[in-house]
Nucleic acid binder design. Structure first.
Lengths: 416, 416
DNA sequence: TTGTAGGCGTTATCAT
DNA sequence: ATGATAACGCCTACAA
C-alpha cells in the first residue's frame, strides 16, 4: 500500500497593503496632441505582510508517512491525494475509485455514496497527467496564434476554448508575434506535450516547422485564412475575396480611382492578400490598381501618413475611394480627415476591415468587412474533435469557408 | 524490450478549395446609423478534396510490431517514438537517452553524437506528460481570465506567457466571462492538472472555489487588482486609487459637480471600485458624489444613454465633468457629444480609463488612466516562479503594486 | 460487483 | 560512464 507524505503549510491571514503615492510629471508626448501630461500614480512597492497562521485543517486522515515498504527510496510525490489514498479511506481497492469516475454505473450504490463522501472530504481530483499517460486519450490541443493581443484573435481563442472545454480537451496557447521562428519554437514545445491536434493561424511555416508537422501524426488545422492546395485542414475566409468585395463595392458605385492602403508591417501577409484580391478586381474592371504602403508600421501612424499624402494630391488625380487594410486605420482616417481638409465620404469614400466596435459610432460610420473569428475558432476546434473521433483514417483535409459580411455604412458612399 | 507499432498515414497533397459566392442582403440594422446594409460574402461550404498520397517516409527503422512479449494485451500507445525506441536504435539503454537530455555532461562524447543522430532522424521529443508524472516538476500554471477578448486582459496573457516560456512552465488559460461559476469550473479543471501555481483575476470567489483554493497547496496569485487583507499574493493596481486620481484631477481644476458613469454590467466589480475611490475623493473634498449607472450593459449603448441623460439636464445643474468607467464609453461620448448639442470639454469635461489606442486620436483627445497589463501579467508569473523556487516555506503573501499613469489630454480641461 | 496485475513514458536510485 | 529496476498516478484486461 502506498501512502502520501503530509505536507502542512501555514497560510497567513492578512496581506496588508498600503499605497504610497508618487506624483510627478514624465514628459512623454504623443504626436497627436499638444498637451498631454502623464502623472504616475503609484510606484512599485513590495510589502511583506505580517505572517499569521490558519487552522491547519488536517483533513480527515492525513496520510501518515510509514517506513519505506521497499528498501528503495521513494520518489518525489505530488503531495496530494491519489486513488490509493481515497481507496484506502473508503476501504475499497483503487480500481473501484477509478471506476467511480469512469463507469459509475458499474459501482454499487452503497460504495458510490461511501466514495462520494470520501472524495468530498478529501477534495480528491483525478490527476489528468497520469490519466493521459495511461489512456492516451483526451489530452491537449496546441494552438499557435499570431497575436493574442488583437481582439480578433482573442475572439478566436474564445471560440476554441469553448469547444475544447465541451470536449474535455485542454487548449495550449502560444503566441508567435507574426514570426515564423516563434511559431517553430512553439511547435517544438507543443510536440513535447504530444498534442492530440494542432491549430495554426498561418499557412507559411519555416522549413523546420514543416518537417515537424509532417512527422506529427495528428490532425492539423490551419485556421483564419483559407488557402487552396495545402495538406492540412483549412478553416476561415479568403482574404482575396474580402479585398475583391471591397473593391467591387466601390467599382459598383462608379469610382475609377480606388486606392488600397497598407501599413508598414511587412510580416503580416494577410493584409497583403486582401490587397491582391483588390488588385485582381481592379484588373477585372479594367481599372489600374493602386496599392499604397505607409512607412509607419502602427495603424494610427500609417493612417495619418496616408491621409497627409492624399491631401497633398491635386483633387483631380486624388483617389475617389480608399480601402484601408484594417478598421483601426480607417477610423483614424475618419477622425483626422477634417484636419487635412478632406471630407469623408464627400471627397473620399473610405472602407476598412474587421468591424471594430467603434466602426458603427464614428461620423460618418464606417463601411467594413466583418469576419467571424469566434466561428472560425470554434469551427477549427470542431474539426479537431471530428478528426479525433474519425481516427487517423480520415478522408483527408477539409476546407471550410466561414461567411464574412460586408457591412455597408456611411463612409463608403461615392457621390456623383 | 518494448516496440511501438508503426502507424503509417497517407497525407493527401492537395486541398483544392473553390469559393462559391452568395450575394444577398440581410437586414441587420445597428441603432447608430440609418443606412447600414450587410452583404454576406461567402456561405459555409465544405470541400472534400481529392485524396492523394505522399511518400510515406518510413524513417530510419520503422519499429516493427513483435508478438506480445507478455500474454497480456498491450495498452493504447501514443504511436510516437519513446526513449526505448531511441535507445534501441542507438544501441544503448533508455537511461542514457534520458541523461542525454537532462544531464548531457554525464554522457560520453561518442554516445552523445550517436544519440544526436538518432534523435535527429526520428524527430524524437521527450513526452512532457510522462516527465511531469515522474518528476513532479516543471509543469503547468493555470490562469483564469475574466475576458480573454478584451485587449487589456490579452496583454496580461502575453505577459504571463512570456515569463512562463522562459521558465519552462506551460500556461493553461480559462475564461470566466466575469462569472464566479465559470471560475469555479475552470479551477476544478485546473486542479486535475495538478498545477504548480494558479493566477486569478478576481478577488471574490465562490465558496466552492475558496474551499478548493484553500486545499490546493500551491502558490496563488491574484492579479490585476490589489486588495488588502487577502490570503494570496497580490499584483496590480488599486482601483480606488484610480478613481480617486481622476476625481482629484477634476476637483483640482475647480469642478464642483462631477459625475461617475457606470455601464449596466453589474458583475464587473472593478469599475464599481473605481467609483468608490471617486466617491471617497469627493467626500474628502466636501463635494457630493454622483454615481450614475446606465441600463445598457454594453459600453457604446451605456455611453449614449448617459449622454442623452446629461443633455436633458438644465445646464445649471448639469455635471461639469464626467468620469466614464472606461475608455470605450468615454470615446463613444466624445463621438456622439455633438449630436447631443454638448461640447467637450467646453460644456462637459470627460475622462476615461484604460488608455485605448484611439484615446490619443479623438477630437478632443481623451484624458485617461493607463494601467500596465503586460507588467501585471509578467510580474504575476514572476511571483509564481519565485514562490516555486523558494519552496512552500515562503514568507507569505506578497503585495506588489504596479504603477498606473494618469494621462492628461484635452478632454478633461475644465474651463472657468 | 469487486479485485489483481501489469503497463503508459519518463526519471531517480542504486549497482556496476 | 552506463545500465537494471522501480516508481510517478491512473486505467484496462482479466480473474474471481
Amino acid at each position: 500500500m502506498r501512502v502520501s507524505p503530509w505536507k502542512g503549510r501555514c497560510q497567513p491571514r492578512l496581506g496588508r497593503g498600503c499605497y504610497r503615492l508618487h506624483f510627478g510629471i514624465a514628459g512623454e508626448m504623443k504626436p497627436v496632441t499638444l498637451s498631454e501630461c502623464i502623472i504616475r500614480c503609484a510606484n512599485w512597492s513590495t510589502h511583506q505582510p505580517i505572517l499569521g497562521s490558519m487552522p491547519t485543517d488536517p483533513g480527515p486522515v492525513p496520510p501518515a508517512k510509514t517506513a519505506a515498504t521497499r528498501s528503495r527510496a521513494s520518489r518525489p510525490r505530488s503531495g496530494t491525494y491519489t486513488v490509493h489514498d481515497v481507496a484506502r479511506m473508503a476501504g475499497v481497492s483503487s480500481v473501484t475509485v477509478s471506476r467511480y469516475f469512469n463507469e459509475p454505473q458499474k459501482v454499487s450504490e452503497a460504495l458510490r455514496t461511501r466514495l462520494a463522501q470520501v472524495i468530498e472530504q478529501t477534495g480528491y481530483v483525478p490527476n489528468q497527467v497520469a490519466r493521459i499517460l495511461a489512456t492516451n486519450q483526451g489530452g491537449v490541443v496546441g494552438a499557435v496564434m499570431q497575436n493574442v493581443t488583437s481582439p480578433t484573435f482573442a475572439d478566436m481563442v474564445r471560440g476554441m476554448m469553448d469547444v475544447a472545454e465541451r470536449n474535455d480537451l485542454q487548449l495550449l496557447l502560444a503566441n508567435s508575434h507574426f514570426s515564423r521562428d516563434s511559431e517553430a519554437r512553439a511547435l517544438r514545445t507543443f510536440a513535447g506535450w504530444h498534442p492530440r491536434a494542432l491549430i495554426l493561424t498561418r499557412g507559411d511555416h519555416s522549413p523546420e516547422s514543416d518537417a515537424l508537422l509532417a512527422r506529427l501524426k495528428v490532425p492539423i488545422v490551419e485556421a483564419w485564412e483559407v488557402h487552396a492546395g495545402r495538406p492540412f485542414h483549412q478553416v476561415g475566409f479568403s482574404q482575396q475575396v474580402v479585398g475583391r468585395m471591397l473593391a467591387e463595392h466601390f467599382v459598383g458605385q462608379g469610382a475609377l480611382r480606388i486606392r488600397f492602403v497598407l501599413n508598414g508591417a511587412v510580416e503580416d501577409g494577410r493584409a497583403t492578400r486582401r490587397s491582391e484580391g483588390y488588385a485582381q478586381a481592379m484588373h477585372d474592371a479594367g481599372l489600374v490598381p493602386d496599392v499604397w504602403r505607409a512607412r509607419a508600421s502602427d495603424d494610427v501612424g500609417a493612417a495619418r501618413e496616408a491621409m497627409a499624402a492624399l491631401a497633398a494630391m491635386p483633387p483631380g488625380r486624388r483617389p475617389r475611394a480608399v480601402i484601408f487594410a484594417n478598421d483601426n486605420m480607417a477610423i483614424t482616417a475618419i477622425l483626422c480627415a477634417h484636419s487635412h481638409g478632406l471630407a469623408i465620404p464627400g471627397d473620399l469614400a473610405v472602407a476598412g476591415f474587421g468591424d471594430a466596435p467603434l466602426a458603427a459610432v464614428t461620423t460618418p460610420s464606417l463601411t467594413t468587412v466583418r469576419p467571424d473569428p469566434y466561428a472560425i475558432g470554434s469551427r477549427a476546434m470542431e474539426i479537431v474533435v471530428t478528426s479525433l473521433h474519425a481516427g487517423t483514417a480520415s478522408a483527408g483535409p477539409q476546407v471550410q469557408e466561414i461567411a464574412c459580411d460586408l457591412v455597408i455604412r456611411e463612409s463608403s458612399r461615392v457621390v456623383r
